[in-house]
Simulated assay, not measured.
Amino acid sequence: MRWYEDEELWTEFSGTLFSERRRAEAARTVAASPLLAFPPGSRVLDLCCGPGLFLVPLAARGHDVTGVDLSAAMLGRARAALAAAGAGARLVRADMLEHVEPGRYDVVLNLYTSFGYFDDPEDNLRVLRNAYASLAPGGRLLVDVMGKEVLAGWIGRPQLADLGDGGYVVQRDTVLDDWTRLRTDWTLVRGTTAREASITCFLYSAAELRALLETAGFTAVTCYGGFDGAPYDQHSRRLVVQGTRPGGPAPSPP
């Protein structure tokens, strides 16, 4: 079983991965970000949507949103969050390595470091090509990751997250293969029990991720240091890369 197929990982570590603080941050980002200011009724694919941190506020703004995730548990939480918000979205259980809906979307989002999961670099490129195929002409892809340059500024120090219920998570990061990949080890402690998990993903610099999008066929590829549209520089905390499928403006939603 590949690490991202482990349902217990997503559910047991959700307090760290998908905390209420991060949910509130996602809602503020959707409300304020110029990169997420889509025309009303845009057809948006949230690829690896998880429990709906971005999906819910996007749907609440009136967009035609589809959330895709491999985890049935996370899709269940997204469904509950949509219901609580009085919003609607289409939810699909699928692997991003396989999911393609030709020409269906105006925007494809892959957010919150949900890219680079596959050990074979060609598989990560295939995800971008799937996104390209799923976009209408003129549609946009946005990928949000922890850039290699940003990570280099703080990696090496264990991180401790208090879950607020008496439990806590210790996170340790290890760079692998000459800064090509990252392994993150988590230890979840509750009372006298501990649960350990590890994930691995590819690391990308801005130049590397821009080149990968261009290889997949995207044009007008631009790197930002956050969803505020700031330049990607030494002050950045995230790497957000946007590319366009050429062919003119995307058609209006039906």
Rank of each mutant, 00 (worst) to 15 (best):
G41Y: 05
R43W: 05
V44N: 04
L45Y: 12
L45D: 13
D46I: 05
L47T: 09
C48A: 14
G50Y: 03
L55K: 06
P57Q: 02
A60E: 11
A60V: 07
D64S: 13
D64F: 04
V65M: 11
V65N: 12
T66Q: 04
V68P: 11
S71K: 07
G76E: 00
R79F: 00
A83M: 03
A85G: 12
G86F: 00
A87P: 00
A87K: 01
L91A: 02
L91M: 04
V92W: 07
V92M: 08
D95H: 13
D95A: 12
E98T: 14
H99R: 11
V100K: 09
R104T: 08
Y105L: 05
L109A: 07
T113H: 13
T113D: 15
G116Y: 05
Y117G: 06
F118C: 09
D119L: 15
D119T: 15
P121N: 02
E122W: 12
D123C: 10
D123A: 14
L125C: 12
R126S: 08
G138V: 11
G138Q: 12
G139F: 02
G139D: 06
G139S: 03
R140D: 14
V145N: 01
M146E: 15
V150E: 06
L151K: 10
A152V: 07
G153Q: 15
W154R: 13
G156M: 07
P158W: 05
P158I: 03
L163Q: 03
G164Y: 02
